[in-house]
Design a protein around this nucleic acid. Structure first.
Lengths: 196, 196
DNA sequence: CCCGTTTCCTAAACCTACTATGCATCAGCC
DNA sequence: GGCTGATGCATAGTAGGTTTAGGAAACGGG
């Protein structure tokens, strides 16, 4: 009975790859045990339960995505920064759909606080430095950008743009343009009536 | 052995309610059988399998949401229409999170084509009649609006805005303002540099 | 009233999560 | 080199999910 060499770290790594192959929901203790050629209960020495496993995968994905975001944002501001961050998210979701799904899983507040989540908020906020928004508008703008990024990626991955004409890449670029224009010209309050 | 009176329609209705109570993922044939006080295999006379059940729930939710959207859009245009549609989506997601999740499930192309999905596209496009966009920009604008709506609702439901200050209602209103401003002033192409 | 259809059942095969428990192996110490 | 304790992995078993096969009982039309 030679040992398979299971460790929590290797489990998470394998879980991350499994997620990209079969989807985050397909990450089960059983599937992971098969991958290690080990019986299911053996994994419970290394991971508390299925939830714990998924949480670790989520934390891994959040870190990885935050690292890539930080790298992409270095030295960029305004429109460049906006597009760079959006592209990192979108590329990550395409290359690693399981990890992207994992990164969206809700964490309990205590775990979330020590995750890379706050780093993501920081980075998102950094984009706005290139645009002149007062501090209360910044929160709203961050939420708008986050919503649009996530919404677009989510719909695109779900195949929502598959059967209509302009490719998703073109729409993405136009939407980045639109967001940039919006941030440069953020409406002060209830905008006036009539044409511009 | 008095009959329980299970029909596909009643199953879907119950499944829809169950989804709102325990989440769309919690809709299982077993849970539904318990709700009807009937043994699990009995349901397989009325529904092909678990996937079929979920598809039917999705179709129901898509219809219902399209009906509400159409009602809300009647007689409205431009900014009013934009906010009305967004509010319908968001209110629906809050009141019926399970149905909203169901409505986002991917359908196979054949089923999708006969679903209320196309109606949703139509309604979304109708909003843009109040704004002057050329037809290629319309597709991009529809995708932007859809992404932002879905992204915001998704993040809000996932608790993403729970632990920071301005309430989600305020951000939502400001984002509707921003979208309206953007649509009234849609950037023609790569926008010029420099301040506005 | 009786027969066919429908509705629901039991039984059983197979998946996943998880717990309890036990044995084998490895590291370190004498 | 052999003992000892911690660790790695296994077997066994509970519990709940999906699904198929086949059978009995209720309902409804002739």
């Amino acid at each position: 009975m030679t040992r398979a060499g299971v460790t929590p770290e290797r489990l998470v790594r394998a879980g991350v790859e499994l997620a990209d192959e079969v989807g985050f929901d397909g990450v089960t203790v059983s599937a992971l045990a098969r991958r290690f050629d080990v019986k299911v209960p053996s994994l419970y020495s290394h991971v508390r339960n299925s939830q714990d496993l998924k949480t670790r995968i989520t934390l891994y994905a959040l870190e990885e995505l935050a690292d890539r975001s930080a790298a992409a944002l270095a030295g960029r501001a305004g429109r460049d920064a906006l597009i760079a961050l959006g592209t990192v998210y979108r590329d990550y979701a395409h290359a690693h759909p399981g990890r992207y799904a994992a990164a969206r899983m809700r964490l309990d507040p205590r775990t979330a606080a020590t995750s890379a989540g706050p780093r993501h908020s920081q980075l998102m906020r950094a984009i706005l430095l290139g645009y002149r928004l007062d501090s209360t508008d910044q929160v709203h703008a961050v939420r708008l950008i986050g919503s649009t990024f996530h919404g677009y990626i989510s719909l695109e991955l779900a195949g929502g743009f598959d059967h209509s004409d302009p490719g998703p890449q073109e729409s993405w670029e136009r939407i980045m343009d639109a967001l940039d224009a919006l941030l440069r010209n953020w409406p002060t309050r209830q905008p006036p009536e009539g044409p511009s």
